[in-house]
Simulated assay, not measured.
Amino acid sequence: MAALGWMVLALVFLDEVLAAVAAGVWGSHAGGWPLAVLAPVVVVAVWWAFASPRARWGGPVVRRVVKVLVFGLASVGLWVAGHHGWALALLVFSVVVNGLAQLPSIRGLVAEQERPPAS
Rank of each mutant, 00 (worst) to 15 (best):
G27V: 01
A23H: 11
S28W: 15
A23R: 06
W26M: 03
W6E: 08
V37D: 15
G24S: 10
D15L: 01
W26F: 14
V37M: 15
G5I: 00
L35E: 09
V8T: 02
V8A: 05
L9S: 02
V12P: 00
E16N: 10
L4Y: 03
A36T: 03
V21K: 13
A23S: 10
L4S: 05
G31F: 14
V25F: 15
G24Y: 12
S28R: 15
A19Q: 10
G32V: 06
P34I: 08
G24P: 07
A19P: 11
L11M: 06
A3F: 04
V37Q: 14
G31E: 08
V12R: 00
A10K: 00
W26H: 05
L4I: 07
A3C: 05
V25M: 07
G31K: 15
L18W: 10
W33P: 07
A22R: 05
V25L: 07
D15G: 06
A22V: 04
A36S: 13
H29A: 11
A19L: 09
V17M: 14
A36I: 05
M7Q: 04
W26E: 01
A2P: 01
L9D: 06
A23N: 11
L14D: 04
W6D: 06
V17E: 06
V21M: 13
L14E: 04
V8F: 00
G5W: 01
A20L: 12
L14C: 04
L9R: 03
A3I: 07
L4V: 07
G27A: 12
G5H: 02
S28P: 01
G24K: 12
P34A: 14
A36N: 12
L18R: 08
V37P: 12
L35H: 10
G24L: 09
A20M: 15
G5N: 02
G5E: 02
A2T: 12
A36F: 13
A10I: 03
V12W: 02
L4N: 02
V12N: 01
P34L: 13
G27F: 08
M7I: 07
A3K: 09
V17P: 13
W33A: 12
V12E: 04
V25S: 06
V21E: 07
V12M: 02
F13D: 00
